[in-house]
Amino acid sequence: MIASEKIKRRLKFHRPSLRARARAPKQRTSLGAQFSAANLSSSLAMQHCTHCGYVQYPPTELCGRCLEDALVYRDTIGTGVLLARTELHHSLWEFFKRRLQQGTWVMGSVKLDAGPVVLLHIGDIRLKPRDRVIVFSHSDNSQSVVLIAVPEDCDITESSTRHEIVGSLGLDQPALKEGGI
């Protein structure tokens, strides 16, 4: 095969739409990777400032309030209020494009009682703005940690329950394409 043809095929086969398995966005910064690592053994771990008590999210190196280098990961209560929600009909990412073929994808924003505003997947489509929620973290199919909100009265103390919710969203498995590469 001549080189130019080979390159052409390679480019074609690298198209995400042709892949057998499409996964959620894996890319994180090193701080995001630390967030994932801290959350593997916790239902929700966030950066807390040991200097001023501020809870920081998204993860940073210095406290966003006092600027001290004093952030540590601690288990955090995930209760909060749903601020806004939206049903996505369109995505830039192949994994979500495939999930969207089966219906809309619901995401939203929550003001945690602990302080920060978090963007997240919504685990119960009945949730509406101002509803009380509880937020937990879980690995998705790209082995990165994401946040999910469910109604506050949902008992998520057991990790098996949390895993089940993630499974029902289709987040734990890649999106498959028959005959993909």
């Binding site: 966005p25 994180r28 910064t29 993860p59 929600r85 939206t86 996505l88 979500f96 963007l119 998705d140």
Partner: peptide, 22 residues
């Protein structure tokens, strides 16, 4: 990268959809 794109990868449409509905 860490805290918004993973949630549906909708680009700016996600944030502005939340802002608009609110």
């Amino acid at each position: 990268i860490d805290a918004s794109f993973p949630y549906g990868a909708a680009g700016p449409n996600a944030a502005f959809s939340l802002i608009t509905s609110h």
